[in-house]
Nucleic acid binder design. Structure first.
Lengths: 235, 235
DNA sequence: AAATAATGTTAGATTAGCCTAACATAATTA
DNA sequence: TAATTATGTTAGGCTAATCTAACATTATTT
């Protein structure tokens, strides 16, 4: 059995690896993600290494073992299934799900997650558009870019958000933006990097910072839009 | 904020008080209920006392303060709402709910519990027939006795179970007994204290021990069947 | 290649929650 | 009421997970 804390470490390692597309995570990076000091990370790594969840050598990066990946994916799966439940079944808003799901993800019962997944009709993505890992730790990743990378004049569809802070999510909600909305980049201000975008026929001005945290699918490259990323080669 | 452990202590104290009908709980009693040693109880009591959740003097019994009761009732409420959710919505069986609900009860989100309660259509009792405390810590208590106390020849209705161990619950399930089933006590064996009972037209033989753990309502005293027990006088 | 900055590690302290073993008080029984 | 049993308390120790402060290594820049 894993402790609450060990689960958080494994989930964080899995998530950071997935985001970067590389299996190597740094101590400081992980510390920041978990809101801890690097020294604390080292203490825990010693334990995770003993239990064969990570591989790491002195002064080099951390890599999850296959078992570590499986466990990390499992926690992420639980988290995203709970987020979906809260959003779909209990009328939670976008910015409310994360805090509660982070507590719920640690409840360990295979039956619980399986039944919830059925109840939700086997969702592939959580309310923020992030993929729900399958039981083998495979993550369905969309071939996406950020709104900031979309060329002026082009249209795209919002498929996910990057940030999960409340201030960001509330900002997006205030724009009236929801998943699968069409967005057109109308104009860019060179001077201050602001973007004018069109949503549902209305023009809004948004910051570069916001645009960098919205994932979109360009409307002319939908064919190759999804591919399964095997973050974990098990079975 | 309460820790996981503090919540367990307060719930246990609330539950023991409620079961006994007295506001006084002993160290050893509590230790047994929580599967801990009496010495550990004392450590925690010091903390709970400082935080004003319990009152206790050297070598005497423990009493919850009003605030302590409110908190204890809150945890019990969460526990029983989760049990109902698992049973009603996720097809958990009688003996599976407890373990998972004991983890879920510590997730702290008022909205979560309120929404779940709505989803379940404001249940008054959990799947074991135990009352769900309201938001003020009031417990609706049925005027009930155990099956062992029912006179031979009389009929009654099962309204709750006392024990929560799996071996007991499975035993009851094997008899085909569910909440609100009618039970008639057909015969008693003087020699070994076994009871013959009729359920759905079939006769079963059960032990005294089992009968002592089944709560029933006698079919002729239904009028005065429920009364609200104010375990906590707040507001 | 030396200086600086960034990153990783270690030692030693702290807190929560539990334990055992010894001891103190209260309750029960002979 | 004295002896016995049940119950409650204290001291001292352990582990998990965190911290700070000092130190070591690696990477980057000049």
């Amino acid at each position: 059995m894993l402790t609450f804390t060990e689960e958080n470490y494994l989930k964080a390692l899995f998530q950071l690896s997935a985001e970067k597309g590389i299996d190597q995570v740094g101590t400081t990076e992980l510390a920041q993600h978990l809101n801890l000091k690097p020294a604390s990370i080292n203490d825990m790594l010693k334990k995770l290494k003993e239990k064969n969840f990570v591989e790491t050598e002195r002064y080099s990066k951390i890599t999850l073992t296959d078992e570590g990946k499986r466990r990390g994916a499992e926690i992420m799966r639980r988290n995203r299934i709970w987020e979906t439940f809260l959003y779909d079944k209990l009328d939670f808003t976008w910015d409310e799900v994360q805090e509660v799901a982070e507590q719920l993800e640690h409840v360990s019962s295979k039956k619980l997650i399986d039944k919830l997944y059925d109840l939700l009709e086997s969702p592939e993505f959580d309310p923020h558009g992030n993929p729900i890992p399958d039981l083998n730790g495979n993550l369905k990743v969309q071939f996406r870019k950020t709104l900031a990378e979309v060329e002026t004049g082009q249209s795209c569809k919002m498929v996910a958000v990057k940030e999960s802070s409340n201030s960001f999510l509330q900002c997006v909600m205030n724009l009236g933006l929801v998943l699968n909305n069409k967005i057109t980049v109308v104009r860019r201000q060179e001077f201050d990097d602001l973007l004018d975008i069109e949503i549902n026929g209305r023009i809004h001005t948004v910051s570069q910072k916001l645009a960098q945290n919205i994932y979109v699918l360009c409307l002319n490259c939908q064919k190759e839009s999804t591919c399964i990323k095997h973050l974990c080669n098990l079975n």
